[in-house]
């Protein structure tokens, strides 16, 4: 018995070193340090931020996207994203009437006519490959970007995909949720009389703005004809250009009203320069057409809301509560160069 036990133990003792004693072949590959996961925070009245498992948010990826946002290397004409999207204009630009880059991580329809649908990575791919027609070889010729893309995406050769992924990560962090309106919803701020009157106009049949500029994101992410035109050509046919559906004639995407005070001019063609002109449109200047949104066709209001001058003033006072100074001054969104 003792001999048998000794034999078993000796066998085990011999096997273990054989299993673990072999020296591992030393790899020559450089081990990248782990990336730092990042979680976007937002109010409970925002929808859950869509995520994409192939492109998880990391601090390193976000910073890389931010670098690219401000770098003319993406274009062939010396411009960067920031050339037409200024932070102090809520990442829009009056000079070119560009849409504001705010809270886009929640969008599934992009551009005025919804030419691009899907997720953030999809619109970024469009921007890289079609809008900028980026010459990716310039990025591959940069030691800095080669190293950064290797670190973030573990690629030796940068492609449009990684560029769009990095940009998408940055965009998903560009969120505005600290305006007076937000603080009101969180019971941290109480509206002035004018702002409260404007809120009531906005959220009742008096103004009926809430149907399209819904709670939280202040956009329903859908398309509507709001009566800007009654005759349609190739220049103003809106969503119809994409779908070919006659019921989409003259429909455009609902833009967010976040920071709307900072983003003139207004409408897809920039025809209005002030919020007063915008409200005047809804008030008395709605043009009839066969695709005018059903919400705009209330009895006695088919040509507009008919608000009084005081009501117009109060509505504008409320619209200004969407301004978020922390967003336009956030150094995490600013030029890192």
């Amino acid at each position: 018995m003792h001999l048998k036990f000794t034999k078993i133990i000796s066998k085990i003792v011999l096997i273990i070193p054989l299993l673990y004693g072999c020296k591992k072949k030393e790899s020559t590959e450089v081990i990248q340090p782990p990336l730092t996961p990042y979680e976007v925070t937002y109010p409970i009245y925002f929808p859950k931020l869509p995520s994409f498992s192939e492109n998880p948010l990391t601090q390193e990826g976000i910073y890389l996207g931010r670098k690219l946002y401000y770098d003319p290397i993406l274009s062939n004409n010396g411009k960067s994203c920031s050339s037409c999207h200024n932070q102090n204009e809520s990442f829009s630009a009056a000079s070119v009437n560009s849409l504001a880059h705010v809270n886009l991580g929640w969008s599934t329809n992009f551009l005025w006519n919804g030419k691009v649908t899907g997720k953030m990575e999809d619109i970024m791919m469009f921007e890289v490959e079609e809008f900028f027609n980026s010459d990716i070889s310039k990025l591959n010729a940069s030691d800095y970007y080669k190293n950064e893309f290797k670190k973030v995406f573990n690629v030796e050769t940068i492609t449009s995909k990684e560029v769009s992924y990095a940009l998408a990560q940055f965009f998903k962090t560009m969120n505005s949720s600290n305006s007076k309106y937000d603080r009101f919803l969180q019971h941290k701020y109480w509206f002035t009389t004018a702002e409260m009157n404007g809120f009531n106009i906005f959220t009742t049949e008096r103004g009926d703005c809430f149907h399209c500029h819904t709670l939280g994101l202040l956009t329903d992410n859908k398309f509507h004809n709001i009566g800007l035109d009654s005759v349609f050509t190739n220049e103003n046919n809106g969503r119809y250009k994409i779908t070919g559906n006659p019921f989409d004639m003259g429909l455009y995407k609902t833009p967010t009203l976040r920071n709307i005070e900072l983003t003139p001019p207004y409408m897809h063609d920039g025809r209005y320069n002030t919020l007063e002109e915008v409200v005047a449109h809804y008030n008395t200047k709605v043009k009839q057409s066969s695709t005018l949104d059903p919400i705009m066709t209330k009895p006695s209001k088919i040509y507009g809301l008919q608000l009084t001058p005081n009501e117009v003033s109060d509505l504008i006072a409320f619209l200004k509560t969407f301004t978020d100074s922390t967003f336009i001054n956030n150094p995490n969104f600013s030029n890192p160069n």
Partner: peptide, 19 residues
């Protein structure tokens, strides 16, 4: 309001408190 999860669909269906 906000009794349902804050999805885009649910937020788009919100009926104002004042109404």
């Amino acid at each position: 309001i906000f009794a349902l999860p804050a999805t885009t669909d649910n937020l788009n269906m919100a009926w104002p408190d004042i109404m």
